[in-house]
Simulated scan of single mutants.
Amino acid sequence: MNGFERRKALKKNNILEASLSLFLKNGISKVSVSEIAKVADVSQVTIYNYFESKDNLIGEVYRYYVHQVWEEYLRLFNSKIPFPEKVKTMIFDKTLVANQINEEFLEYFMKNYMQEDSYIMKFYTETALPQFLELIAEGKEQGYIDKSISDEAIMLYIQMFADHMRREDIASSLLPLTEDLTKLFFYGIFGKGME
């Protein structure tokens, strides 16, 4: 990559970063292209040259966001920490998902990018899901997960548990219960070894 291409890529990345930051904080409709340009330290014309429209920029921001979050998950999956710590991090660590996601940003994402034929769903199906299934296989192999439980049920359980734990209105009250909740997650109310 030559100097011109490097500067162009850096400028585009700055626009995506600025847009994401503003959208997460304020939603989409309240953020103007001029605000994005100011935060990214570029002109509005530059934004339109790179993305053509605010709608195209929004789509690129969502793809960028998904890839950022996914990189965090990959670092976790590929780390040498024990399987239970990986799952605990997935459930309780808010750095894997932005602490404050504007409700409009999330609603727009769900409405426009979660259809079966979307880029995001294709990415989830082809890239993320196989990695999550590998993690489940790791847990089964190490004896942390009952091999008779379907992968689908485990994925749904992890997602429900994680979504609930990340809710802002309960997150602080759950912090002292993290260890208990982790045991409950893995062993249920009967505890380890109960059959």
Rank of each mutant, 00 (worst) to 15 (best):
S43M: 05
Q44C: 05
Q44F: 00
V45T: 14
T46R: 07
I47P: 09
Y48F: 15
N49E: 12
E52V: 07
L57D: 05
I58C: 04
G59R: 07
E60V: 05
V61M: 03
V61T: 15
Y64S: 01
Y64T: 02
H67C: 04
E71D: 14
E72R: 15
E72V: 06
S79C: 02
S79A: 08
S79I: 09
K80E: 15
F83E: 06
F83I: 02
P84I: 04
E85L: 12
K86Y: 04
V87G: 02
I91K: 08
K94R: 15
I101K: 11
E103M: 08
E104V: 03
L106M: 14
E107W: 05
F109E: 04
K111N: 11
N112F: 06
Y113M: 00
M114Y: 01
Q115C: 07
D117T: 14
I120M: 05
Y124A: 11
E126K: 15
E126H: 08
Q131N: 15
F132Y: 14
F132M: 13
L133Y: 10
I136T: 12
A137R: 14
E138P: 08
E138T: 07
G139L: 01
K140Q: 11
K140E: 01
Y144H: 12
I145N: 08
D146T: 01
K147E: 14
K147T: 11
S148H: 11
L156M: 06
L156D: 09
L156E: 09
Y157H: 13
Y157S: 07
A162E: 13
D163C: 11
H164C: 09
M165N: 11
I170W: 00
A171N: 12
S172P: 06
S172Y: 11
L174G: 03
P176E: 06
E179A: 12
D180S: 13
T182G: 10
K183I: 00
L184A: 10
